[in-house]
Amino acid sequence: MLVALEQRLYATYSGGNKMSVARFWRKQQNRYNLIGNQCTVCGKYFYPPRGFCPVCRREGKIVEHQFKGTGKVVTFSIIRSSSGNFKLLTPYVLAIIELDEGSRLTTHLVCDIDKVYIGMPVKRVFRKLGEEGSSGAIFYGTKFVPA
C-alpha cells in the first residue's frame, strides 16, 4: 500500500523520474513559507533554496532566509492548454516574479487574466498546489496574488 502510494507520488511530483518523494517533502517548509537562503559572503538571496552559493561556490556561506513575500512581475503568459493538476485551472497566469530581495521564481499568479502586466506588484499566499489523484494526498505551497 505504502509502496504503491510512494510510486504514485513519485510519478506525480517528478514526472516519473529525476526527483524522489523524500526530496519533495524535505523542501516542504521552503515551499510552504517561502524560505530560501542568503549567502553571507556576497549578500545575494536565493529561492528556490540552494545547497551552496552559485556565485561564490565553495567560498560562499549559505544561511536560511525568510523572504518578505512581496515582489513584482518580470514576465508572464496566460496558459490556455495544460495537463495534470493545472488542466482545470486554464486559462491561468504563469509568471516569473522578482522578489524584493532580488531572487526570481516561477509561479502560478492567481488573478484575473486581463489584469496582469509587467511590473505588477504581487505578494505571496499559501495555496493548494495540487493533489495526488481524486483520493490521494493534497500538497500545498506558495502562490502569488496582486499586492
Binding site: Y13, F24, S77, I79, L94, L105
Partner: peptide, 19 residues
C-alpha cells in the same frame, strides 16, 4: 520539475514568457 513544473509550466508557457 521541482520549481517550474509544480508552478504549472508548460513548454509553450516558458517560451511564451520569453516572448
Amino acid at each position: 520539475r521541482e520549481w517550474e513544473g509544480i508552478a504549472g509550466i508548460t513548454f509553450p508557457g516558458l517560451y511564451a514568457m520569453i516572448a
